[in-house]
């Protein structure tokens, strides 16, 4: 009897679990890093610097948030690069000014993301393609479309978008940050829907989820569509940042989103993790870049930094996941 009934699991205290959990570690890293930054650059604590940092991080944070949905469901979504490029190019080639124009642009970006996500979802959930293969295909097609629309960097994003979205509300709250807050709020609500719980279920074990009654393909398609919408918004915010169009604007996102997701404590094996962690992960990456390059290191070497951080982030994520697992299983 003692053989099959394991000892009651030794569980760590709630505080320690919160620290070591999905988002705890990355939040801690962010704070420490910011303290370090403030130590070197006294103006780091100014509202201007903070707003700037939030503005810089928002596109990546949104893209990483989208990627997290797919990763939790046990998949990889490469189409992020394509959707960001495509929406960025559209924003620059067809600028719509004024608040109404901004809203229309935002909706257009969301719609494009949702459409690409829908195609990914159908290819994967209904037609049985591997996630990497299917999203690689859609990424390439989107990048091609971006090139067709704008074959070299150029164009102008509408002034309203550029100015308003990089501004602050009441002089204190960065407007870009509001998008992140909205994403987090929606996520927390989604987590408590049947589909949200199903997302974790299919990520852990698709067969068991199916046998438990979860509508597997529906959940998977929802994950891809949600991810696509977030990529669309990321492209929108990126356009507000750069004010111009670039058909390869999305390429750096491919790598950085995975780094942010892994850093945020979402294991790439699926079934676990949180969108909040990924947003903090993205913030950490941008902050790290700022800290390291405030000294004026040659930009030739940013690539080396990004590559190394990417691998370290994933190794780090794997280690945290292992620790958490050890904590849970016996």
């Amino acid at each position: 009897m003692s053989a099959v009934t394991a000892n009651p699991a030794r569980r760590r205290s709630p505080f320690w679990r919160a620290v070591i959990s999905d988002t705890g570690i990355v939040a801690l890293i962010y704070v420490l890093l910011y303290a370090l930054y403030a130590f070197w650059q006294p103006d780091a604590l100014s509202l201007y610097t903070f707003t700037d940092l939030v503005n810089n991080s928002t596109p990546l944070a949104l893209a990483a948030a989208g990627e997290t949905l797919v990763v939790i469901s046990r998949g990889f979504d490469l189409s992020v690069a394509g959707v960001v490029s495509l929406t960025n190019v559209l924003m620059a080639v067809y600028p719509l000014d004024g608040p109404g124009g901004a809203l229309a642009s935002l909706l257009m970006c969301c719609a494009i993301g949702a459409f690409v996500g829908m195609i990914n979802g159908i290819l994967v959930a209904r037609l049985g393609l591997q996630t990497i293969a299917a999203t690689l295909g859609t990424m390439i097609i989107c990048q091609g479309l971006a090139l067709v629309i704008l074959d070299a960097p150029g164009g102008m994003v509408a002034d309203f978008v550029t100015y308003t979205l990089t501004d602050t509300l009441f002089g204190v709250v960065p407007i870009a940050g509001l998008f992140l807050v909205a994403a987090v709020v929606l996520w927390l609500a989604f987590r408590r829907t049947n589909t949200g719980i199903g997302l974790y279920a299919i990520g852990a074990d698709e067969q068991s989820a199916r046998f438990s009654g979860v509508a597997v393909s529906g959940v998977r398609i929802t994950a891809f569509v949600g991810a696509g919408i977030l990529y669309g918004v990321a492209g929108f915010m990126l356009s507000a940042q750069t004010a111009t169009g670039n058909p390869t604007a999305g390429t750096p996102f491919l790598m950085l989103t995975f780094a942010a997701v892994a850093l945020g404590g979402t294991p790439l094996g699926g079934g676990r993790g949180s969108l909040v962690g990924s947003i903090l992960g993205a913030g950490t990456l941008m902050l790290l870049q700022k800290v390291l390059f405030s000294g004026g290191v040659s930009s030739f070497y940013t690539g080396i930094f990004q590559g190394v951080v990417l691998v370290l982030a994933i190794v780090f994520g794997n280690t945290v996941a292992r620790l958490l697992k050890k904590d849970e299983a016996r």
Partner: peptide
């Protein structure tokens, strides 16, 4: 057909909470 990452309650209630 249980999901190890969900709670006992969630497993019992799946797919509708």
């Amino acid at each position: 057909s249980l999901l190890p990452n969900l709670s006992i309650a969630e497993n019992l209630m799946l797919p509708k909470m």
